[in-house]
Amino acid sequence: MNPPSDLAIHATGLTKHFGGTHAVDNLELAIPKGCVYGFLGPNGAGKTTTVRMLATLLRPDAGTASVLGLDTVRQAESVRERIALTGQFAALDQDLTGAENLTVAARLLGYRPRAARIRAAELLSGFGLDDAAPRQVKTYSGGMRRRLDIAASLVATPEVLFLDEPTTGLDPASRNQVWATIRALANAGTTVLLTTQYLAEADELASRVAVIDHGHLIAEGSPGELRAAGGTGRLRLRLADAERRPDAAELLHRLLGGSGSGSGSGSVEAAGSDPADVTVAVADAARATEAIAELSRGGIALTGFSLDQPSLEEVFLALTTTAAPAAAAS
């Protein structure tokens, strides 16, 4: 049975145990070519194990996986010609310089010595690492290491790129650069499978997202669909006058609560360190703007507001709590 040819990654019943724990359990995946696919879940959910199986580093205990129609176990060698992996921990040689690391990678992909040096220089400049090129990697910052590590995966543009938590621990500037790189690759036709702990990151980059927990796939869809499943976002307000907090809370509860507005909507969080800040759960962005208008009509002046999307934890909790009764019923 051949998987459909338009799939970059196809997994059926993919399973991996470590001792007694099911790191990945009966996972089904069908990822179309050319998309950025987000793999979302907390630490220990099985994201890395799945990526390692797909990238031919780990042999599944059960089930099969194919990358671009090639079996990851029986045709591992052919899979390796078309993929690249940037793991969670930089796969770099600390003792070598940035330029040497990339030159080694290029030569291992078949570049002649001179061409390898040219390719390495090209990538170093593309990733803003020209100045650091002659320095040993052990002197690099975390962001520089990550960029170099991703650069090493792009020496030969892969058809499928696995990025395991590429932005964890990065400063915002480095993170933006990684994001821009991922977008450029996707535009050039590379399929990117990206694991992340942040819904916002999946939102930024991914056209489809799988949520994984305890080795199980618990939801799959577009980021918007996931956020909708997660229900409530948060409206954060800053009052001009902290004394008006009780009035604002009462008004918000009345406007945003009530039937049909989603679980928890309208509940105002207790005052934090700054009594001028008010945070309220809100299910519907349209009603949030009404509430803001209503506050100013009621004479409660604001100095700022923002509407936050539900965090991964909230989406995650929503998904796991709704999934539990269904599982119990079946």
Binding site: E81, L109, G110, R119, E122, G126, V155, A188
Partner: peptide, 20 residues
């Protein structure tokens, strides 16, 4: 709030050489 992406054309390889 995203900055314009750096010119990233250089990071894409022209073609893959034959494996060593």
């Amino acid at each position: 709030t995203q900055p314009a992406p750096r010119p990233l054309a250089t990071i894409l390889a022209a073609q893959r050489p034959p494996r060593p």
